[in-house]
Design a protein around this nucleic acid. Structure first.
Lengths: 339, 339
DNA sequence: CTGAAAGCGCTTACAG
DNA sequence: CTGAAAGCGCTTACAG
């Protein structure tokens, strides 16, 4: 049943000899090539079974110059938006038959750089990159020189030509701020997020546009950036509360930020939804169950992941020409924090 | 600066020729072998830069019979417990210098089987497997024959000899049920989870032990299994409510299950924490923010991930002998659902 | 329909 | 300290 001396790996050559065919034939059999007649095929399959042969994809890839490997690099799986995105991408990629190399950067530019290099050395067929807030110049250069298909996700990277899958952050921010303005709020803060990232500047564009459309005046002092985490939201909220006249409404960079912000407000005795309105961004599952349930911009991270995988696949098989952009439209989900 | 005709990949041989050394020397340089003098090293590094050489890890792996790749297979990243586990494992593995191949099974035994096979074909150096609730016999056989290091995580697999990292589910269930019994509850349901999985039977063992220690009587009718999801919890709760005499307390397989259960109870006008006490398992971040905040058994998925990575690494480098088991102790976190 | 031989890009003894 | 040559396990023209 099994080769008793497990000294050496069983190779295709062993299989071929055992079955009395050439390695060429054996190779065609393992790859299900239809031009091998059934009888021969069965003989080879039997030998494979008997010898306990394991196909060596590494050797095959080496020779055929492809790897079937796709890299997916994200900032932080602990973020629900990102993990949902990853689920979408991962499932779709596996469906296409790829194996996924996963990398997480913790939003660190150097780690991102190293991960990309390692993956390229592993000869990935393509890469889906959810870039860190800030990327090294070296990385941008490397990405541009990359001969492998690349899809950027969730965050753009300037000076780079690649497919992109993400949501329309500007539109999302516009929806949120317009909602607050229509409720009569004159002073609406914008809290959280990293100013250098495109995800922040896009939201800022939407924020600004809504202000303009409702004849409101921007106040730099109530636009406070932070780490894109719940803790970052807490810090931003504390800064805001220390300012001379806190605003009556807060647009948050993300739901995570909003949670941090609400934690601080609540601790200060401020009742969210009555004293101050708060709107988040992402509509992560917790938003609905939070107390009080959070008004937020619903994006579709899992769909973005799926779209990114599709873009990459069509790029890899050479089906798509030029640059593709998949921008999903967000929608506003109104809940108790701004009713 | 760069080779103008990007026809062919730049190889180590090209680099060696350009630098006027042998490929042996060039190879030693790229691997930072200290026995190459500084002058030679720099000459080679210059050539690498000038030619835009990219190290081909696939070829290297092929020759050196190792891959630097580690497989991590989990059931479902959408589950916070699992995503936290993945973060721990992933970070630690990257720290050790491995690249991670990620697979998700959606708790499907066939998909798990295929993923393992594919990864083995990719010549992974080791595998961390969070097994699906039920595994194919073929998989168990394959895993036992595997010549590569294997660490099982979060869930045991019978008839398999491998390292294991997880928490003490029995102890966790015992803590939870004892807590409810001490509050005076006589009839405590156990809802959710798949009966065939070790994660369920272990909890059942703890549940039984607590019942015995407090002289309570088991009632089969209030032990209701389900999918390990929030929707599964809803279903189990509906079944429970339709039973002749619903119990006064519910021990849930997981926080996710508990959320589903509480959703149904609340919809029925039953006030959790007053009419019925509920305890979860896992202490996922949402448990604290849920309304009302959930009493639960705190496990440490990220730590388990880290431990699994450590076990695997020491196995790969041949440092550990025999079978290792890392069982983390859980603790009970009492919140409003059972105050 | 099938096979012999070259080659993918490295690393590894071995020799000097 | 450095190099020539073999070999990792496949696939790919090419020939018959």
């Amino acid at each position: 049943m099994k080769n008793t001396n497990s000294k050496k790996r069983v190779t295709l050559k062993d299989v071929a000899e055992h079955a009395g065919v050439s390695t060429t034939t054996a190779s065609l059999v393992v790859r299900n090539n239809p031009r091998i007649p059934q009888a021969t095929r069965e003989r080879v399959l039997n030998s494979i079974e008997e010898l306990g042969y394991i196909y060596d994809r590494v050797a095959a890839n080496m020779r055929s110059q492809s790897s079937n490997l796709v890299g997916v690099i994200v900032t932080n799986i602990a973020n629900k938006f990102i993990s949902e995105f990853l689920i979408g991408a991962q499932n779709k990629l596996e469906e296409f038959g790829y194996t996924v190399l996963l990398g997480t950067t913790s939003d660190n530019a150097t780690k991102q750089q190293n991960l990309i290099s390692t993956m390229v050395e592993h000869r990935i067929d393509g890469l889906i990159l959810n870039p860190s807030s800030i990327s090294l110049e070296k990385t941008v250069k490397q990405l541009n020189n990359l001969k492998i298909p690349l899809v950027l996700a969730n965050r753009e990277l300037y000076n780079i030509s690649a497919d992109y899958a993400g949501i329309d952050y500007e539109e999302g921010a516009y929806l949120a701020v317009t909602h607050l303005a229509k409720k009569g709020h004159q002073r609406i803060a914008f809290l959280g997020g990293v100013k250098e990232s495109s995800t922040w500047t896009k939201r800022m564009d939407g924020y600004r546009k809504a202000f303009k459309d409702h004849n409101l005046e921007l106040e730099e002092s109530i636009i406070i950036a932070s780490d894109p985490t719940s803790e970052g939201g807490e810090e931003a909220a504390r800064v805001l509360l220390n300012s001379p006249k806190p605003p009556s409404a807060i647009f948050c960079f993300s739901d995570l930020i909003a949670f941090g912000v609400m934690k601080v407000l609540t601790k200060e005795g401020i009742v969210v939804g009555r004293d101050v309105d708060v709107v988040g961004f992402d509509n992560i599952p917790d938003a609905e169950n939070y107390h009080p349930p959070l008004t937020t911009v619903s994006s579709f991270p899992r769909s973005i992941g799926i779209q990114a995988a599709k873009l990459l696949h069509s790029k890899i098989i050479g089906e798509s020409e030029g640059l593709q952009r998949m921008i999903l439209k967000p929608e506003l989900v109104i809940r108790d924090t701004s009713k």
